[in-house]
Design a protein around this nucleic acid. Structure first.
Lengths: 299, 299
DNA sequence: CTGAAAGCGCTTACAG
DNA sequence: CTGAAAGCGCTTACAG
């Protein structure tokens, strides 16, 4: 050991990996669909949580962003998964088009999914409760004529969950969820603006808009302003995600926090549990309502 | 080859790495100082550019976020660098406290630095030109009483560059740069608000504030509003970075784009040049002024 | 040009 | 308990 110190011996990880079968590499997989992944505020948050747990245990993070289509993930990713290079995988796995964990399972690599694709071990944010909290907040302020800015269910498996939560809160308040006008955006700010324009034109007496993410909410607010509305005096707008921008936007956004870093660290800890031979249960992370100035009672 | 197809043979990367000495792993290094790295909008942008080049060539990205102090990077990172696991390294290398590429050089691993620490191969955004363009724009609108919201030079090596560019543009317009009031923030939105409060209290006749990043600019705008200013009618505020938020903020921010994805892809291409035995020259990426509604002529 | 052997630097099961 | 040997699955230099 003294000699190790003196000579500055550093083990060769490739040799260690070959002989022990352990690479100490965890792949964190963010499927790359419609260019969204590098615009998704959850990505860095989840990475932050995963990184903290991995670095503490001497594991390295390999970042994979496979292109995902109906036929599955791209060839590079499949090669990587089958190459024996990975001790474990953590994947954002909520795109309906396909599960990125399917080839990982087939290869028998321990993995944890973040999201809704059925898989052995998984962590998810409680999207249903997030949707419920958001609708409950808006209804609780006294709103009754509420418009919804959503995205198609085929985009993400969290969508039906959030909508189901909203439905439950609306119905608990005696409102007819199916009667609420609904427009479909694409998560983007301009998309949110378009939806707001459509909804407010179709039904000018709406007093609130609930959006499935913060970027659409920001677009909706800008559009509403151009149509002569004041947020929140004559229109309440709520978002989802609590991206960094949400707190510094004007007005600051009422939204739902998914606690990305905690999701990431929980997923990582769950993976290390699996690697240690345990069989952890599904974890559903609570969401938190962040009430800011974009919501207020109706005029 | 037919048999390869039929049997589904996949080479074992660990074995290949050991025998060939090539791992096909590139580490992308973002030093983790004062929790900034996961709040830095450049991180995902650079990753996006690097990822595009690497995946195209069948290289994998290992994400490293070493804690950086005056004594250098943390032990885990040093072990990784010396372990023979990396074919190359791309690092954000502009923190004055230390260079994360120093141990990489010592080990003889091909590497490219993004930033200002002197190193053999590097790419950087032209911060001097960015500072110049920003000051030139503000001066060109007719402003003469301009306040600066900066950060201490010890925080980042881009700071003196941006300030030098601003000085050059100010002096080219016959203004005394040293007479411009200056406050030091910490890149954060609240920090920007504090600085704006200080500057506008000290010198209420300022007609413009130039900030070293967008987050501080957003804080400055909110603070100015609370002090009765209207942006841009009675106060121009400019930022730097063109983060996604900049275009949807109210008012949309005048700022400088560093083109993060292009920085990342240039750095990656440069690294592959080095791996191919070439000796690429320093690349300085041009910046672009994005003039939006937060700047206007003085009242 | 083809095919068998050595070697990459570890870990680990095993003989002493 | 200690130490020498085999083996992980490739690549590559070399003999045929």
């Amino acid at each position: 050991m003294q000699a190790v110190e003196e000579l500055g011996y550093i083990p060769n990880l490739a040799a260690r990996a070959l002989s022990s079968g352990k690479t100490h590499i965890i792949s964190v997989v963010f499927p790359y669909v419609y260019d969204a992944i590098f615009a998704d505020p959850m990505v860095l948050n989840i990475l932050q949580g995963v990184e903290a747990e991995c670095s503490q245990r001497g594991y390295n993070i390999l970042l994979s962003t496979p292109r995902l289509t109906a036929t599955g993930a791209d060839e590079n990713y499949l090669l990587l998964v089958r190459s024996g290079y990975l001790d474990g995988v953590i994947a954002l796995d909520s795109y309906p088009v396909a599960s990125v964990l399917e080839p990982v399972h087939k290869k028998g690599i321990p993995c944890v999914g973040i999201g809704y694709h059925p898989t052995t071990y998984q962590v998810r944010s409680d999207d249903r409760s997030g949707g419920f909290q958001l609708m409950q907040h808006v209804v609780g302020l006294g709103h009754q004529r509420i418009g919804l800015i959503a995205v198609p269910t085929r985009d993400h498996l969290c969508v039906p969950e959030r909508l189901a939560g909203m439905r439950a809160a609306a119905e608990a308040a005696g409102l007819d969820f199916d009667a609420m006008p609904l427009a479909y955006g694409d998560w983007s700010t301009p998309g949110g603006a378009r939806c707001a324009a459509e909804l407010l034109a179709r039904q000018p007496d709406l007093t609130a808009l609930i959006c499935l993410n913060d970027r659409m909410a920001m677009g909706a607010i800008q559009q509403a302003r151009e149509m002569g509305r004041h947020v929140p005096r004559t229109l309440t707008v709520a978002g989802y995600d609590d991206i960094p921008m949400a707190s510094v936007f004007a007005p600051p956004l009422t939204t739902i926090s998914q606690q990305g870093p905690e999701l990431g660290s929980r997923a990582a800890r769950m993976l290390f549990d699996v690697l240690a031979g345990r069989q952890p249960e599904l974890v559903t992370m609570p969401t938190h309502l962040i009430a800011r100035q974009s919501s207020a009672p109706p005029p």
